[in-house]
């Protein structure tokens, strides 16, 4: 398929950048740091101390992966998505390469779609990195026996892998919604750094608004609303409400900001 060749080229460009690997390395360092610190401390974290699930880390390797996702989701992971999605169109514009892609001709809609898919792939790789590294270091330092869930039930290794994959999927879906917002912002400017900063600021503002009780009516509509809502995936039986509500909300964000990006980019004068 013709589109896939451009997608391949996009992915090669993304993963040829030193910046991309630096971001993935930074993400990978979170579970490693966390696991090592917990392992070396003589005083294991008690229930309710530190980030959610931290007290569970010593109990099973799986929880290193899940806790690392909890710690990276509010800020670190969205920052990397801000960089990649904010750069999609604005980055090409500031390099001047956008005009050459368009006269190639890449096709504006095709370019927009392929750029978005590239960011989605990056989101999968980013959460996958935290998960895999978390599992590896967790297994090495704390073993992978049976794990005790929040509901008190005990699950085996296979089930634990499945549960942490679900958490990873939840976080990835959150980032896919953010990526659509980021790409729209990216069509508004010719300054890649400006678009990245705007996406990062928006992420923080949305989370701050989510803390204000006066705005409770707004909370269900914030794209950050369900970002940390994956505790229900760690119970037996699994409660899917949060997961599916979030997927629907992120889907709506993708549709809305995708349409805005389409409207903007297909009519934009490329003067960079």
């Amino acid at each position: 398929m013709r589109g896939e060749r451009l997608l391949g080229s996009e992915l090669r460009v993304l993963f040829r950048r030193w910046r991309t690997w630096a971001m993935l390395a930074a993400l990978a360092s979170i579970p490693i740091l966390m696991a090592v610190v917990v392992r070396l401390s003589s005083d294991p974290p008690g229930p309710g101390e530190g980030p959610p699930f931290l007290d569970q880390v010593t109990n099973n390797g799986m929880f290193v992966a899940v806790t690392a996702l909890v710690m990276t989701t509010p800020l670190f992971m969205p920052l990397t998505i801000a960089v990649v999605s904010g750069d999609t169109i604005a980055g090409e514009a500031s390099l001047g390469t956008l005009r050459y892609l368009l006269v190639a001709p890449a096709g504006r809609v095709r370019l927009l779609v392929v750029k978005y898919l590239t960011t989605v792939v990056f989101a999968v790789v980013a959460s996958g990195t935290v998960l895999l590294v978390g599992w590896a270091i967790g297994a090495a330092l704390f073993g992978t026996g049976e794990a005790t869930l929040l509901s008190g039930d005990t699950i085996g290794v296979g089930d634990a892998v499945l549960r942490s994959l679900l958490v990873g999927a939840h976080v990835t879906i959150c980032m896919i919604g953010l990526a659509a917002i980021g790409q729209f912002i990216s069509t508004l400017t010719d300054a890649g750094v400006g678009a990245m900063a705007a996406v990062a600021v928006l992420t923080i503002v949305a989370q701050v608004l989510g803390q204000l009780d006066q705005l409770a009516w707004l909370h269900p509509w914030l794209f950050t609303h369900h970002w940390l809502g994956f505790a229900d995936l760690l119970r037996t039986p699994i409660v899917w409400t949060s997961f599916t509500e979030n997927a629907a909300l992120q889907g709506a964000y993708v549709a809305f900001f995708g349409a805005l990006a389409y409207g903007r980019f297909t009519t934009k004068d490329v003067l960079s």
Binding site: R2, G3, R5, L6, G8, S9, R12, V13, Y100, L101, A104, P105, A106, G107, R110, L111
Partner: peptide
């Protein structure tokens, strides 16, 4: 190569 890949008519 990158610019060529952007041209949907170019033969890889």
């Amino acid at each position: 190569r990158r610019f060529d890949a952007a041209d949907r008519h170019a033969d890889p």
